[in-house]
Amino acid sequence: MKHMLALSELTEGQKGKVFQNNGVGGMRRRLQDIGLIPGTEVKRLQASPLGDPCAYQIRGAVIALRQQDACRILVETL
């Protein structure tokens, strides 16, 4: 059962595959530069102590993203 979610909606430890990057401006490009393009597998890691931002594993690197940015990335759950 695959379904679409925003990246920010993944639960801790859950994996997803990027479907669409709806980021705007510089952030869109920055995420692409670190390899976040459609088809890329992403794993949600821990949240920070105050709940936002969250850490994500993207192509072997750990990247912290704020909720407001992560919610613009659509993923298919795996």
């Binding site: 510089g26 931002p53 407001q68």
Partner: peptide
């Protein structure tokens, strides 16, 4: 408004 933020947490 706060702009976007991506920070790598290195090994």
């Amino acid at each position: 408004v706060p702009s976007s933020f991506a920070l790598e947490l290195p090994p």
